[in-house]
Amino acid sequence: MAESGKIDPMHQFAIEPLFGTDHLSLGGFNIAFTNSALYMVAAAVVLWIFVVGGMKRELVPGRWQMAVEYMTGFIKSLLIANVGEGGKKYIPYVFSLFMFILLANLLGLLPLGLFGLHPFTFTSHFTATGVLAILSFSIVLAVGFYKHGLHFFSLFVPHGTPLPMIPVIFPIELVSFLVRPFSLGLRLFVAMTAGHVLLKVLAGFVINSANAGVGYGLTVGSASFILMIGISALEVLVAVIQAYVFALLTSVYLNDAENLH
């Protein structure tokens, strides 16, 4: 969007192939290395660096080791609270999920625009969040059917349902269960998209009002700017909360698979 004076708040979500990999393909599918892929790699690398710092395995931990152990301990207590002792085996998965989403959200919020770079939040794309949601849902299905076999379908008939109600309750419960991967993926995508759009719209207000004149700049522009500061802080909070919600819901669903009702 090169039109002067016009700021497109959606442009930040545009995916662009990088390093001339436009036509990179695998089995007929285009797998160009895009700015989105770059941020996925960045999130993975930052997470790797973070966890490597906690691998000193000292009895008396340093600050970094303490921070890493705090995060794993946090996921462990989340799983124990929601799934019970049997939930400990999901620590690697839920930790990966939580930290990957958290870093993706936070890296996308970095003010890299100041250095001429284009920050990108791949969690604002449902093609990315959908993969994670389907992955979580598949694990729930696999664990549920592996542990309980066809008895897993009793999940859709809550305890104490009167017999004549079962034909009605069962489809409702089934639909609400099948909607889970969509709600899981869309919630993250919508939250991240909305926050980034809001920030860009307000930033557009600041720039356009300042261009329109000193009076507009001082009134509309400064008010928008102050609002942006608050909303930026809120977005950091949302970044953490959405990662937490994703991990929390995954562990709640895992509880259904592990323990039924």
Binding site: F29, S36, A37, F122, V131
Partner: peptide, 9 residues
């Protein structure tokens, strides 16, 4: 982009 997104994800 869907294929690239899913692949890299």
């Amino acid at each position: 982009t869907y294929a690239s997104q899913i692949f890299w994800m």
